[in-house]
């Protein structure tokens, strides 16, 4: 029997347009299990891109609560979330599920260091949307040892950076760190006698840089799950929003990096 077609039939399929991207493997996107660490500004933008791209199985880890200052950059947070001091992971989960095709976004409200390492083992890939070096180092190391690709985003003002880590080969995030990173990490945990105080710098941040970095991060994940690692950024992507210039840098593997010594 001949197949019957009807006008505008293609518009019934939610994913008709991405299906037209030849190399994009939507079934692999649907099946992928992602771990997303951090539910702030970058997490909101990454989360939006993930669910609209068709990712369905996403676990969000974040311990913070929504504040009023988040609302200029976080599409899934509302004034009521800030007034009610709602957990970011849960507010983001609810927002992503409302936007998703088949929502299976989960929220884990704790620091990534408190989570079971099973989360890494069971994931297809890990996305870092973090705001501090210590959590980045931990997430980078756990992803690397679990053999999972790690895509880390960082930004301040109009400056941004995305690092792609693809174990077992190549450099990891920590390979590119130096004494300035160690100083900032130490500053976070400054000990005064018996007390340890957590220093949280208030960094400049605005949505357009966040949005661009999140797009790069999710695009790289789509390439990876589609089996197109050949199209992926090889290493580090640096972006300067003031001039709208982006450049790919090479971060060489550091043989003294603790992640590679283990």
């Amino acid at each position: 029997m001949e197949e019957i077609i009807r006008p505008a039939e293609v518009d019934v399929d939610r994913f008709d347009r991405p299906r037209r991207v030849g190399w994009l493997d939507l079934d692999a996107v649907f099946r992928a299990k992602l771990l997303m660490v951090g539910a702030g500004a970058l997490g909101n933008e990454v989360g939006k891109n993930l669910v609209l791209s068709g990712f369905r199985d996403i676990t969000i880890v974040d311990m913070d609560r929504v504040a009023m200052s988040n609302l200029s950059r976080c599409m899934f947070f509302e004034k009521g979330d800030a007034e009610g001091s709602i957990l970011k992971a849960e507010a983001l989960r609810d927002g992503m599920n409302s936007l998703a095709d088949k929502g299976a976004v989960k929220a884990v409200a704790c620091s990534i260091e408190e989570c079971s390492t099973d989360l890494f083992e069971k994931s297809t890939a890990v996305l870092g949307c973090l705001d501090n070096i210590i959590a980045r180092m931990y997430t980078n190391a756990q992803s690397y040892h679990a053999g999972k690709p790690y895509i880390d985003g960082g930004m301040e003002g109009f400056a941004g950076r995305v690092m792609i880590v693809r174990p077992p080969g190549g450099a990891c995030l920590q390979c590119g760190m130096n004494r300035s990173h160690a100083k900032m990490a130490n500053l976070r945990f400054s000990c005064t006698g018996s007390e340890t105080t957590l220093y949280e710098p208030r960094l400049a941040s605005e949505i357009t840089t966040t949005s661009l970095l999140a797009s790069v991060m999710v695009r790289e994940i789509i390439k990876h799950v589609s089996g197109r690692n050949d199209l992926m950024l090889s290493n580090a992507f640096f972006y300067d929003g003031r001039t709208n210039r982006a450049e790919e840098f090479e971060v060489p593997l550091n043989p003294e990096c603790p992640v590679h010594l283990q």
């Binding site: 070096i133 590119g176 760190m177 130096n178 004494r179 300035s180 990173h181 900032m184 790919e248 840098f249």
Partner: peptide, 25 residues
Amino acid sequence: ESAATFWNKEMGTYVVRKGKKVLRG
């Protein structure tokens, strides 16, 4: 450190690159 101090940069994280390559600290 010398360059960041010279330009009165706020305490933060920086890398130095030569060409396309980020140099190890």
